[in-house]
């Protein structure tokens, strides 16, 4: 066994990498290596690539008992049905609204929290804040949703607080106008501290001597923050921003499915929850696959575009 590896240790980087002889030798030498990758390759074929092939359903009137090959092809009918339904505008608007609110509220607040945390000089106190602030992240979504349901019920804690201003103790989850604040605020409750970890780490990496130099030059705290701190963590901010923009239309369905109800579909129903309802509750497979494919294509395009823009202008990119 070992002899082969010894022979292979002198691998040079020639002009042509994939000649027939080289491939043959590589396959022999690294047979064990490739064998180790086989289960994963099978895994990703079955659970990722086969579903991509399954997107064919989007062009079919798919019947599970007929399968992919015998179900009737209907061209773009499923897509045009979606584009002409009221759900098209509504689900896209709701999905985008949640993403954009998240982007303009949660995203900067997380950074500001990290910056403020960085100003806490007492290490003990700082650790305590961190520990407490990301504790909610570890509570499961189902439990968080359960707490939200309880707090927003007609006698709930939050409803009682809202009642002081509005005089009404109607269940908050039954009113379309409250959905977005509930969604965004609960998301912040759960993710603020955890989301800040990455910035806190980046802040720790900023060279402390820069601050001393700036202080000697007479820069005040705000100027130091503006000219040292922010530039120091800007690549982290940009990466996180690319991720957010790339997933503007990719809002997960779990929280929505747990919390929404027909009364508030108007603001709460998003693309992924609509796909779930149409596909898995109403068994309209072809149609819901078309909706989900439409969504996947847009997500892919958004990620590519935001990554491309970032690579061009800031030399920071995901791939």
């Amino acid at each position: 066994m070992s002899k082969k590896y010894v022979a292979g240790a002198v691998v040079t980087t020639p002009q042509k990498k994939f000649t027939k002889a080289k491939v043959k030798r590589d396959l022999r030498k690294n047979a064990v290596v490739y064998l180790m990758a086989v289960p994963a390759i099978v895994f990703f074929i079955v659970f990722s690539y086969m579903p991509m092939v399954g997107l064919l359903m989007a062009f079919q009137n798919f019947k599970p008992n007929l399968g992919f090959f015998r179900s009737k092809f209907v061209g773009f009918k499923n897509f045009t049905d979606f584009f002409s339904s009221i759900y098209f505008g509504r689900t896209i608007r709701n999905t985008l609204m949640l993403s954009i609110l998240d982007l303009v509220i949660s995203f900067p607040v997380t950074i500001i929290f990290a910056l403020l945390l960085n100003e806490i000089k007492n290490i003990r106190f700082k650790r305590t804040i961190q520990t407490v602030s990301y504790m909610p992240y570890f509570i499961s979504m189902v439990v968080v949703a359960g707490i939200i349901v309880d707090f927003c019920a007609s006698k709930g804690v939050i409803t009682s607080a809202v009642k002081i201003f509005t005089g009404s103790n109607q269940n908050l989850l039954s009113m379309p106008s409250y959905w977005r604040p509930i969604y965004i605020l609960s998301g912040m409750w759960q993710g603020l501290g955890f989301g800040a970890i990455i910035y806190v780490a980046a802040l720790a990496g900023v060279d402390q001597e820069l601050y001393e130099a700036a202080a000697i030059d007479g820069a005040n705290r705000l100027q130091q923050c503006r000219h040292i701190t922010i530039p120091g963590i800007s690549s982290t901010i940009i990466i996180m921003l690319i991720l957010r923009i790339g997933s503007l239309m990719a809002v997960g369905s779990e929280k929505t499915i747990l919390l929404y109800n027909p009364q508030i579909y108007e603001t709460a129903d998003i693309i992924s929850s609509y796909v779930y309802r149409k596909g898995l509750l109403e068994f309209n497979y072809g149609y819901s696959t078309a909706v989900s494919m439409f969504n996947s294509v847009i997500n892919f395009a958004l990620l590519m575009i935001s990554n491309g823009i970032s690579r061009k202008y800031s030399e920071t990119s995901l791939f």
Binding site: S48, M52, G279, Y285, S296
Partner: peptide, 26 residues
């Protein structure tokens, strides 16, 4: 020789996927 290709094959699944319904059917 092929490890980078295999990695690409795997990483691509982060960018594009078949979605909930197709996975359910599979």
């Amino acid at each position: 020789l092929f490890s980078n290709f295999i990695m690409f094959f795997i990483s691509f699944t982060m960018l594009f996927n078949g979605g909930m319904i197709a996975s359910y059917i599979i």
